[in-house]
């Protein structure tokens, strides 16, 4: 982490902690904020949070490791989450999954080398009547097709000016 980032992080954590009088109910909101800003929860952040809330860093780690939307590993700028639960499976999510791997050049669970995209599976997104469904960060896409899924990814590439290597996953 850069020194300036560290200072910003410290200020953010202190602000969140003050807002909830260092009560633990403020823990998830602050962790969600850190995840959003830094795309993961770095070790330094866990220490900061532990200090601000007067708990052991192991407690913070315990919480971070429990929730699937929090991670200690840095995620891509865009997290693509494809629903793998039953109704989307019936609606043909396998084909979409292959297409996503080919378009992004990574397997599920991986992040593109340029750090732009992380590809993940998720469970039911509450879009079962319009599957296959997926999330890109907090945008939801339903009834995705082999064509539209590519267009969706393209639109994010354009948004970020990202260059993603084409070609199949190894």
């Amino acid at each position: 982490m850069l020194a300036s980032e560290k200072e910003q992080l410290h200020q953010d954590v202190v602000m969140f902690a003050e807002n909830c009088a260092s009560h633990r109910s403020g823990l998830l909101p602050v962790l969600q904020h850190i995840q959003r800003e830094y795309r993961h929860i770095p070790a330094e952040a866990m220490q900061e949070v532990a200090d601000a809330f007067n708990i052991h860093p192991a407690e913070v780690y315990g919480v971070v490791s429990f929730y699937s939307f929090l991670s200690t590993k840095r995620k891509g700028k865009f997290i693509v989450r494809l629903c793998k639960t039953i109704s989307c499976d019936l609606a043909g999510k396998n084909g979409i999954a292959t297409q996503l791997e080919n378009d992004l050049g990574v397997k599920f669970g991986q992040t593109t080398p340029d750090g732009k995209f992380t590809l993940e599976y998720t469970h039911c997104l509450g879009m079962c009547d319009q599957g296959p469904a997926m999330l890109v960060n907090d945008e939801v896409y339903s009834k995705v097709t082999l064509e539209s899924v590519t267009d969706i990814i393209e639109s994010y590439i354009r948004k970020s000016g990202a260059h993603v290597t084409q070609g199949g996953a190894e």
Binding site: R24, G26, L28, Q32, V63, Y67, S68
Partner: peptide, 22 residues
């Protein structure tokens, strides 16, 4: 806002989660 966990829909887990725990 939750953070991606099905079991947090169970009411006592939901409270744990609100209180900043697993």
């Amino acid at each position: 806002l939750g953070s991606g966990s099905y079991v947090c829909g169970e009411e006592s887990a939901l409270i744990e989660s609100l209180e900043g725990h697993r």
